[in-house]
């Protein structure tokens, strides 16, 4: 170890990897993973979300899943919950749509109106 700066760099990298173990108010992406969601392709959606977050190095975003919410024909369903803002629910989220939602809503705070099925 040569310097405090070198230590700081390792610390930042490590924190990015373990961030999700902390109890912080982060942006949450919730993917519907009921049988209906999985049948409609939620696994691929989730994989695309993970991939997009990694590509964009978005360390503050937490990804979780939930069960069937009773809107099976709208699956895969994805909620975006930003700290202090109402929940936005998107329907028929394919992998490609998920990537666009991340780019627009998660990163730039612009809700993608045409795919929204509920808010609040």
């Amino acid at each position: 170890m040569k310097s405090l700066e070198e230590l700081e760099r390792i610390k930042k990298e490590a924190q990015a990897m373990t961030k999700l173990r902390e109890d912080k108010e982060n942006t949450k992406i919730v993917v519907g993973m009921g049988t209906c969601g999985i049948a409609a392709g939620a696994r691929e959606t989730l994989a695309a979300i993970m991939d997009e977050l990694a590509k964009r190095n978005l360390q503050d975003v937490v990804v979780t899943q939930t069960g069937c919410v009773g809107l099976c024909e709208q699956e895969p369903i994805v909620d975006i919950v930003k700290p202090g803002k109402p929940k936005v629910t998107y329907g028929r989220v394919t992998g490609e749509r998920a990537r666009q939602i991340i780019a627009s809503h998660v990163v730039n705070d612009r809700v993608v109106g045409e795919w929204v099925i509920a808010t609040g």
């Binding site: 170890m1 490590a14 924190q15 373990t18």
Partner: peptide, 25 residues
């Protein structure tokens, strides 16, 4: 119970070795 004890990086991520760094420098 919060870190992987076999990962020095995870220890550093929770301020590990910062105290040593401060003392020495």
């Amino acid at each position: 119970g919060l870190i992987d004890p076999e990962s020095v990086e995870e220890y550093i991520g929770r301020d590990g070795y910062a105290a040593l760094g401060r003392c020495l420098s």
